[in-house]
């Protein structure tokens, strides 16, 4: 059965002076309409590459991506993107930032209608009282809410979220996860989200796609989440299978870690014998 979003034998290769480097290879994923999928993996595993190809911001080397029956060819407002940092115009107010996109996508609406759209989505993210605050006066969490409102206001066919809560502290992150799920309950947008936070993936997704470590990253495992919607955090945490899934995912990530470590050792064994040094440089 064809999916609403199809990623078919997706691949990404960069040409370097040492020859081609395959980042992503044979990445296959079908998403049904309204489905929420998290790509979970360590940084540098190629998950951002997949998302950027879906956004049309990174050329596809092999294979293709079809969204709602049409193969994507470059970026477009049919796919809303939210990055880790919200990229707002700091001198503009919250509503002006949202109107930037709304004015482009709804040129046929009246000015009042466009304001209503922007105001409506800002209210949904809990910024109804801060419409006219400048972006620079908003906290990081509030700025990210504006980013979410802006993405939804354009009524995209697909939402692409690149670690949207990665910069926020864990309690603010939980709050924004709930706001996002609440909006998705009204506007069922097919969503692909990148995260490295296992609890976030569990709470948000219908399916969690685990990627193997790059280079040559591909789908390593897929978990179907058993939690009902609408989701309450307390209920999800209380679910008898929650910690089973959580530990299986953590194990998968740790396995990938060990593989990476072994590869690194193999690569460095001739020149640099110290593994400890490798780790230390991270800290």
């Amino acid at each position: 059965m064809a999916g609403y979003v199809e990623m078919f034998r997706l691949g990404k290769t960069y040409d370097t002076k040492n020859g081609p480097v395959v980042i992503v290879e044979e990445f296959n994923l079908n998403m049904s309409q309204g489905e929420y999928i998290c790509l979970l993996g360590h940084s540098g595993c190629g998950k951002s590459t997949v998302l950027m190809m879906a956004a049309g911001l990174n050329p596809i080397t092999t294979g293709g991506i079809v969204v709602a029956g049409r193969e994507i060819d470059g970026p477009g407002p049919d796919r809303g993107i939210v990055f880790q940092s919200p990229c707002l115009m700091p001198w503009m107010t919250a509503i002006e930032n949202v109107l930037l996109g709304v004015d482009q996508v709804y040129p046929h609406g009246t000015k009042a209608q466009r304001r209503d759209i922007a105001g409506y989505y800002l209210s949904l993210v809990g910024l109804g009282a801060s419409l006219h605050k400048r972006a620079s006066a908003l906290s990081q969490g509030m700025q990210q809410r504006v980013g979410i409102a802006r993405a939804f206001a354009l009524k995209p066919k697909m939402l692409l979220l690149d670690e949207p809560f990665g910069m926020l502290d864990s309690l603010t992150r939980m709050e924004l996860q709930e706001i996002l799920l609440d909006i998705l309950r009204r506007d069922k947008v097919t969503t692909l989200m990148i995260t490295h936070d296992v609890d976030e993936a569990l709470f948000m997704s219908d399916r969690v796609v685990m990627m193997t470590n790059g280079p040559r990253a591909r789908v390593g495992a897929i978990f179907n989440m058993p939690f009902e919607r609408p989701r309450l955090r307390a209920e999800v945490l209380d679910h008898p299978e929650y910690y089973d899934y959580r530990s299986r995912m953590i194990e998968f990530l740790q396995e990938q870690d060990h593989k990476k470590l072994r590869n690194d050792i193999a690569r460095h064994s001739s020149s640099q014998p110290a593994v400890g040094k490798e780790l230390e440089s991270v800290v």
């Binding site: 956004a55 970026p75 407002p77 049919d78 996508v105 209503d116 409506y120 109804g128 009524k155």
Partner: peptide, 25 residues
């Protein structure tokens, strides 16, 4: 709070094919 309430107008985005520029968030 006394925030204003908004009613979402029944408006679809304009046909995307006319657009080639990304709207980034």
């Amino acid at each position: 709070s006394v925030a204003p309430t908004f009613v979402l107008p029944d408006l679809r985005p304009k046909d995307l094919r006319a657009y080639s520029k990304a709207i980034l968030n």
